[in-house]
Nucleic acid binder design. Structure first.
Lengths: 249, 249
DNA sequence: CGCTTTTTTGACCGTCATCAACACCCGTGG
DNA sequence: CCACGGGTGTTGATGACGGTCAAAAAAGCG
């Protein structure tokens, strides 16, 4: 009963029916261990990880894993699927802060604040591994590289957001869209998937909310890239044809 | 000799003449201790801090404290003055990621990477307190709240950058400039300075590079605010007259 | 004081937003 | 199975906001 000691429930705790939760296969054999855990762990370290017996669970397309203001209690690793993290302004405008893919950590906004600062919404039916705060802290004490790994996660997030600020502050619509495609492509490559045949699980509007553009501008830019033979477009499926001319206008 | 053990020098190590360095007054009596250190430290904790004997030094307007790519070796607290952190793109465009004021920490980009990811440039003659990595790690071990305080710094940076993404991705020029002024105002208030009479040490061009606008747009927007009696403008000195109508267009 | 840098202001232009119409895709239910 | 409907995507026409180019005024700085 992982939630027995805590009174308030996060969004996901209210949402996920108990039977959807299940003990994870151990970390040793997890497909995403090389992404979510530090490099070069010893067998002993892995047995400590396995002993943690992390819970995993499904979540449906469109559902919120947590929302801004929810109490922070856990971080998550995406075992399958993808997410968006979003800030919704008081007047309804929404800004997407990031898209998270398989293997990415989720929920670190709110580490050391008591509350999350974004909404995290599933872009497709997804599978999550839950790492409650107290287990994470235990790991940081027991496994030396783990502490540093958490720093790395946070630092990487700072660097990623800085890159996003640079994109939003100084790039044209065309540069934004090509950066976006190349970024997804690279991340797919890092996951052993095709870097040229992309299935985008977000709508044009969501891409726009991410890139600081309107959906029509996103659509038009993609069409222009298609006309120029830089990419192929069929709905949410995009094929990258000419990486060179995507990188250098 | 704080740098004796390390071969490569950072920008500041090459730049600052040795005589400009001096042992700091102890932390117990430091004017910015309530900003840069955790709340509620015991007398014992403070004596540990004092024993660290941090070095402090001056830096001149326009000089780089460090540049992107420099090896990370230390974080800094601003004892007097102000800084900008900047990303310079390959084609020369520059994006300012943040402005740091008195009491703000500096240099955490690069914590856990080996290298800094921004340039940090002094906006005016400034005074810094240097906290080398090994002393910081020592403090995190010895003083319990310190570890959590470092997390807080990093988390705060993630949240600040997310707010910046929201500003750049979804706000008009007018909203960006008023957000900027109100932000500086609040931070001055938190430092016990006047929240209405602001001395901006950055140029209009730098404000533009921060807000994703051209300098002419910044200037025009300030002039419009002046014409509408929301602020007073005399060069880099700005007086906030009508906070209400800056917050709500 | 004189020179450079910064700031302001004007006129004009381009990119992207807005509004609108239509095509498309996909799941749903008849 | 196909028809239907709503969400999604494409494309066009038009315009506003902010960028660009230019020149003069103001403020720093040696």
């Amino acid at each position: 009963m992982p939630f027995a000691e805590s009174p308030a429930l996060t969004t996901i705790e209210r949402t996920i029916p108990h039977k959807a939760r299940s003990a994870a296969k151990n970390c040793t054999h997890c497909a995403i261990r090389h992404i979510c855990m530090p490099m070069g762990l010893s067998d002993e370290d892995f047995s400590k990880l396995d002993a943690m017996n992390f819970t995993s669970f499904k979540i449906h397309r469109g559902d919120a894993l947590y929302r801004a203001g929810d109490p922070f209690r856990s971080i998550y690793a995406i075992k399958a699927g993808s997410f968006k993290t979003v800030v919704v302004l008081s007047d309804g405008r929404e800004q997407i802060i990031g898209f998270q893919l398989v293997g990415d950590p989720l929920g670190m906004d709110g580490l050391s604040h008591e509350h999350h600062i974004y909404d995290a919404i599933a872009l497709e039916d997804s599978l999550l591994c839950m790492i409650p705060l107290h287990k994470l802290e235990q790991l940081c004490r027991d496994i030396k590289p783990m502490q540093r790994h958490v720093y790395r996660w946070m630092c990487a997030e700072i660097a990623r957001e800085a890159a996003m600020i640079t994109l939003l502050g100084s790039m044209s619509a065309e540069e934004r869209v090509s950066s976006f495609l190349l970024n997804i492509s690279q991340r797919m490559l890092a996951r052993g998937r095709s870097p040229t045949d992309l299935k985008l699980h977000m709508t044009r509007e969501e891409i726009g909310h991410y890139l600081g553009l309107k959906l029509e501008t996103v659509s038009r830019t993609l069409s222009r890239f298609r006309d120029e033979q830089r990419i192929g477009v069929r709905g949410k499926t995009i094929r990258i044809i000419d990486v060179e001319r995507l990188q250098h206008p």
